[in-house]
Simulated scan of single mutants.
Amino acid sequence: MEARRRYHRYMPSSDASDTPRRRIVEAAVELLESGGPDAVSTRAVAAAAGMQPPAIYRLFGDKEGLLLAVAEHGYAQFLESKRAQFDPQAADPVDELRRGWDMVVEFGVSRPELFAVMNSATGGRTDAAHRAGLEILHGRVRRLAARGLLRVNEELAAQIIRATGLGAVTTWHSTPAERRDPTLLTILRESMIGAVTRAEPAMPAAETGPAPAARALRAALPDEAGVLSDAEQRLLHEWLSRLAPENGTPLA
């Protein structure tokens, strides 16, 4: 929720006053984020904005036009935050790259429905906003190149940064909530740092103790029945799960 409040601080300049367009777009965003794209019907949006459905058709043409305006709204919020966060004078361009990557992933993780609409929208101001975001990314990459810190060429570096960020968001949301591990995001970010720059990735410390051995034993156990009795299999599985849970930190 904190991320959502932060990104709501900025309103697109075209919606800066309390206009019908702004009320409709804000209502559509709220419905999108609470109920997904199917909740953004012209009737529901009009009711939430305190207006009649014909106003939506007059201002946006149809539902697709409304979703395009929602994407523009999201890009405006995102770009304002991105520009505020970007510091071309930052002492360490690698740390600045980390912060930029984290910001993109935080936006996608905290606002998945809006993020999806933004990434599927094309045309008009969304294309312009997308290009503006890429300019900021390329600015970060150029600073790395100027310091002799790039491991690959600038275009490939930008592609890797974008691909790992989008992949992180997609994987996070496609994973059941009870199996999500924030360590995944750190590892993906640091893998990107290692692939793009000459800096040392700040990877999480490798596991020590019995957990690696327990995982190896679990992987090596035969699948066929008969080696162990059912009771022995259950007991062994309990022991291995305590030493190395399939999702989470080994028990102390």
Rank of each mutant, 00 (worst) to 15 (best):
E2M: 06
E2H: 11
R4S: 13
Y7I: 04
Y7D: 01
H8N: 13
H8V: 02
R9Q: 14
M11N: 03
S13Y: 03
D18G: 01
E26G: 01
E26I: 08
A28V: 06
L31K: 06
L32S: 14
G35Y: 08
G36A: 10
D38Q: 13
A39L: 06
T42H: 06
R43Y: 07
R43G: 10
A44C: 07
A46E: 09
A48R: 15
M51V: 11
P53T: 05
A55M: 11
I56C: 05
G61T: 05
K63N: 12
K63R: 15
E64I: 02
E64N: 12
A69V: 02
E72C: 09
L79A: 09
S81F: 00
A84L: 12
Q85M: 13
F86D: 15
Q89S: 14
D95T: 11
W101R: 01
F107S: 01
G108W: 01
G108T: 08
S110M: 07
R111E: 15
A116G: 07
A121E: 08
G123Y: 07
G123I: 04
T126E: 10
A128C: 01
A129P: 00
H130F: 08
G133V: 08
L134Q: 14
I136S: 01
H138K: 04
V141D: 03
V141Y: 05
R143M: 13
A145L: 04
A146Q: 15
V152N: 00
N153R: 09
E154M: 11
A157N: 09
T164Q: 06
T164K: 00
T164S: 14
T170D: 08
T171Y: 13
T171L: 15
W172Q: 06
P176K: 08
P176Q: 09
E178P: 00
R179M: 11
R180S: 08
L185Q: 02
I187G: 02
R189T: 12
R189I: 06
M192Q: 12
A195V: 01
V196A: 03
T197V: 07
R198N: 12
M203L: 15
P204E: 13
P204F: 11
P204L: 10
T208V: 09
G209L: 09
A211L: 08
A211Q: 07
R218Q: 10
A219G: 02
L221V: 06
P222H: 09
D223A: 15
E224F: 07
G226R: 06
V227H: 11
D230T: 11
D230L: 09
H237W: 07
H237R: 14
W239I: 15
L240W: 03
L240V: 02
R242V: 02
P245D: 13
E246A: 08
E246W: 01
N247F: 09
N247G: 05
G248S: 10
G248M: 11
T249K: 14
A252G: 13
